[in-house]
Amino acid sequence: MKRFWIRRGLRFFAFALLFVTLAGFVIMSLWNALLPTIVDVSAITFWQALGLLVLSRILFGGFRGGGWGGYGRMRHGYWRQRMAERWEKLTPEQRQQMRQQWESRCGRGHYGRRQQTDPQQEEPRTTAI
């Protein structure tokens, strides 16, 4: 299972790197083909084109994913709402089974747990909320 996620992460990184490289070359080519003759500015390098890409993303698009192609729904809790609806439809036995599957996959961390002290015990113990 871990190998799947590692391969998936590497594939995502490769496609992101390819996309950024391609975008840089497209920006550089368009700038160098159009603007020196129209506005009388100098040609730019690949790294300057990437800088322009980042600058335009900061000024006009931000880094949150924008609202194109359904990304805006994710910002507004779309997936959280869908998961909550599915969770409500599960029976208590199915919920317990799901929790056990999550613990076996993700480990038993202290997320969502608070430390409580028992008067008979000296050491604090963790309990689920």
Rank of each mutant, 00 (worst) to 15 (best):
A43P: 15
G24F: 00
Y111E: 14
R86T: 04
Q100W: 11
M28H: 00
A33Q: 06
R11C: 11
F60A: 12
G77M: 10
R8M: 11
Q115G: 04
Q48G: 05
L18A: 06
H110L: 11
W5V: 08
G112F: 02
M74R: 14
E103T: 05
G109L: 02
V20K: 08
M98W: 11
M98P: 09
T117W: 08
A16H: 04
R86I: 11
Q100F: 10
G66F: 02
Q120W: 08
A23I: 04
K2R: 06
A23P: 01
E122K: 12
V39Y: 09
W102Y: 05
I6M: 05
K89E: 09
I129F: 15
G51R: 02
W68Q: 15
L18W: 04
D118P: 04
T21N: 03
Q94H: 07
L34E: 10
R82A: 09
R108N: 10
G70K: 00
H110F: 10
Q48F: 03
R8D: 13
L55W: 04
P119N: 02
G77D: 12
T127Y: 09
W47S: 15
P36S: 01
V41L: 07
Q100D: 15
A16G: 03
Q96W: 05
G51F: 02
T127I: 07
Q101W: 13
S42T: 06
V54K: 05
R82T: 05
R64D: 10
R105H: 15
I38L: 14
W79M: 14
R82S: 13
W79H: 12
R75A: 13
Q94D: 06
I44P: 00
L22W: 02
S104L: 12
S56A: 09
P124C: 07
K89A: 10
F60L: 10
W68E: 13
G77N: 07
E93P: 02
F46I: 08
D40A: 13
Q115T: 15
G61I: 03
Q121N: 15
Q100S: 08
M28W: 00
L55D: 03
F19Y: 08
Y78M: 05
W79V: 14
R99C: 13
G70E: 03
Y111P: 13
T91S: 04
Q121R: 14
M1R: 06
F12W: 05
A23D: 13
L35R: 00
A49D: 00
R75P: 06
A84Y: 09
F19I: 04
F63L: 08
Q120L: 11
T37H: 07
M83T: 15
L22E: 05
L50G: 01
A84T: 11
Q120V: 07
R7P: 08
E85F: 04
Q120C: 09
G77C: 06
S29L: 05
